[in-house]
């Protein structure tokens, strides 16, 4: 258990709204080893970003963690006071957001912003050593250290995303969460950045959580993959297992709906229906209204995430191998 950087146990998080509770994250459990990259995939509203903001406890006012634990090494983040959490945020867990423009303050030089983040965690002894550290970080992420003296608007999209990665690395955290880190970028820039991130991850033996709706990106960067549907983790296994032997009908559906530019051009399959409204999620398995294999039990009972061998977990009464 000691080699796990992160262990999430039965995490449940709701957003309270005037119309009722939104069941955004429901009984989600997973663990991440040191040096491992985990991918969380799912469609909009499936709860993947809600998990990230729960891990960082950067939740909006109407969000309530209803239950469960988030162990970072052996500290339960759910139990921490905001004051203590502030010391962990950025220092122990940091995040690369999708909109890099919004993550950087437009009126400060990029280098100064990174130094400030380090300062807040008591990692700055003298201004000069801090500048040297940031220059090293810039080189590490493939940016010219001269760019430290420039403002965010002078950067291109790809450069900004690199600066945000440098910032995420600045306090040498145990875990980095990258939420759609390349979604707004063109493919060539995306390819470049993902290669850089994977290289850094191996070099620094970092633990990463990649969040994306793009299963091709997740396939390329992740050791393990968790598939989310309507607030629940429905499948969790090694990347190769998830792609080559998907067990959950939803995962299998996603795979056969996703186009590729290589291989024979096979017919894409359509998943019927749309994801449920999480104000009123369906009873039982949340995928049952769209599932071709659903039976009575799926409409009544919630399937739990079970290991079907090979470290391959699935929450389904009728996993694909049997269908």
């Amino acid at each position: 258990m000691d080699d796990y950087v992160l262990r999430v146990d039965d995490l449940t998080m709701h957003y309270t709204t005037r119309a009722g509770d939104v069941w955004a994250v429901d009984n989600v459990s997973f663990a991440l080893k040191k040096g491992q990259a985990m991918g969380l995939v799912g469609e909009s509203g499936c709860g993947k970003t809600s998990i990230a903001t729960s891990l960082l406890r950067l939740l909006p006012d109407n969000a309530v963690i209803k239950g469960g634990h988030i162990y970072l090494n052996s500290t339960d983040l759910v139990a921490l006071e905001e004051e203590e959490m502030r010391k962990i945020r950025w220092r122990r867990i940091s995040m690369v957001f999708q909109a890099a423009m919004n993550a950087l303050n437009p009126v400060y030089k990029v280098g100064d912003q990174i130094i400030e983040a380090m300062e807040n965690h008591g990692l700055v002894t003298t201004n000069e050593t801090a500048r040297n550290d940031v220059a090293d970080l810039f080189r590490l992420v493939g940016l010219d250290p001269k760019l430290m003296e420039q403002y965010p608007h002078e950067y291109s999209g790809g450069m900004r995303q690199r600066a945000v990665i440098a910032m995420a690395l600045s306090c040498n955290p145990d875990l980095i969460i990258a939420d759609e880190p390349t979604t707004a970028l063109d493919v060539i820039v995306q390819d470049n950045l993902l290669r850089e991130m994977m290289e850094l991850q191996h070099k620094l033996h970092m633990s990463m959580i990649y969040i994306s709706h793009d299963i091709a990106v997740i396939a390329e960067v992740s050791d393990r993959i968790g598939v989310m549907y309507a607030g629940r983790l429905v499948e969790l296994a090694s990347a190769v297992e998830v792609f080559h032997h998907p067990l959950h009908p939803y995962t299998a559906g996603l795979m056969s709906a996703f186009p590729s530019i290589i291989g024979p051009k096979r017919a894409l399959k359509t998943l019927p229906g749309e994801p449920p409204d999480l104000l009123h999620p369906p009873r039982g398995c949340r995928f049952h209204p769209r599932c071709p294999y659903a039976t009575d039990i799926c409409k009544q009972e919630v399937p739990v995430l079970k290991d079907l061998g090979n470290d391959h977990y699935v929450a389904c009464y009728h996993p694909m191998e049997a269908n």
Binding site: I188, D191, N192, E220
Partner: peptide, 19 residues
């Protein structure tokens, strides 16, 4: 050629070249 080789492939076993 560069553009095509930068497109992510939905198969973790497939290793793309560098564009």
């Amino acid at each position: 050629r560069a553009l095509l080789s930068a497109v992510p492939i939905p198969d973790p076993a497939y290793k793309r070249g560098v564009p």
